[in-house]
Computed example of a mutant assay.
Amino acid sequence: MEKQKLIGRSGVYAILINDVIRYIGSSASDLESRQSNHLRKLKKGTHRRDLQKLYDESGGDFKFYVLDYCDSESVYILEKLHIEIHKDTIVDQEKIIKLDKHIRTKEEKREISKKFSKIMRGENNPNSKISEQQAIEIIIMKQQGIKHKDIADIYGISQSQIAKIGYEKWSYLS
């Protein structure tokens, strides 16, 4: 990652060891300093025990990857989102629990949930099998009366998924 692209920018990042996401973090002001700090600690052998062990065992395989650039107000929400997406591979499981404790009221939980839904809808959802353009095409085909089975065969997804497009899934396109 080029240094000048990180200096003074806020966002959410991942540390990959052996090409697997092992840590998710964020910076509200300067991603470059976070990258430098992590790498310095790992090289000195003074990082968090779990991440340090993986780094040492990998022979120093370290990659710093920006998952999302964002404004400083969105950093926390996006970090939580990425931790949820990658929770099976990150080493800091306690961080998942700590982030949940920061959300205190029902209103705050609803607000976070709305923002997650907006961020994760459509092709931004890592589980999405189709693009927004394909979803539009499917909606049009359904309106034209084409059978769900035929549409499913064209796009390589199940008939039940075809039935949901425009109603439960991708409803904002209808």
Rank of each mutant, 00 (worst) to 15 (best):
Y76R: 15
I15C: 09
I130K: 01
Y55M: 06
G145M: 00
S113V: 07
E32A: 14
I21T: 11
Y65W: 10
D30A: 03
K3H: 07
R22D: 03
K80Y: 07
I103D: 00
S29L: 10
G11E: 02
Y55E: 02
S27P: 10
C70E: 01
W170E: 02
K115I: 09
I77A: 11
R40Q: 13
E132C: 12
Q134T: 00
N125V: 05
P126E: 01
S29T: 14
V91R: 01
R9A: 09
G166C: 08
D71M: 04
N18I: 07
Q52K: 07
I162L: 00
D100M: 10
Y172G: 12
Y76A: 14
S33Y: 09
G11R: 04
E111A: 15
Q159M: 11
L31K: 02
Q134H: 02
E2P: 15
S158G: 09
G145R: 00
I103V: 12
L39A: 04
Y13V: 12
S10E: 01
A14F: 04
G45W: 01
N124S: 06
H102R: 15
R48L: 13
D88L: 15
N125Q: 07
L31V: 05
E84H: 12
M120V: 08
K87H: 08
I136N: 01
R121H: 05
I138A: 00
S171W: 06
I21N: 04
K87Y: 03
I165N: 01
K5D: 10
V91T: 06
R49F: 13
D50P: 12
L67N: 04
K109T: 11
E132H: 11
E94G: 13
K80R: 15
K63S: 11
S131A: 03
S26W: 04
S72Q: 08
Q134D: 01
V12F: 02
Y13A: 05
I90E: 00
I77D: 04
Q143L: 13
G45V: 06
N37D: 13
K41H: 06
K147A: 13
S171L: 10
G166P: 08
I17Y: 02
R22Q: 07
G156W: 04
H102E: 13
Y23V: 13
A14D: 02
Q52I: 10
E137V: 01
S158M: 07
L16N: 04
R48M: 12
I103Y: 03
H102A: 13
R104T: 09
S10Y: 05
K63F: 02
H82D: 03
G11Y: 02
I77C: 08
G8P: 10
L78I: 07
I17A: 05
L78G: 11
N127Q: 13
G122S: 01
D50G: 11
D153G: 15
Q144D: 07
D150N: 14
N18S: 09
S128N: 04
D61C: 12
N125C: 14
F64T: 07
S113Y: 07
D71V: 10
Q161M: 10
I165Q: 03
R48I: 12
T89L: 06
Y13Q: 04
S117Q: 14
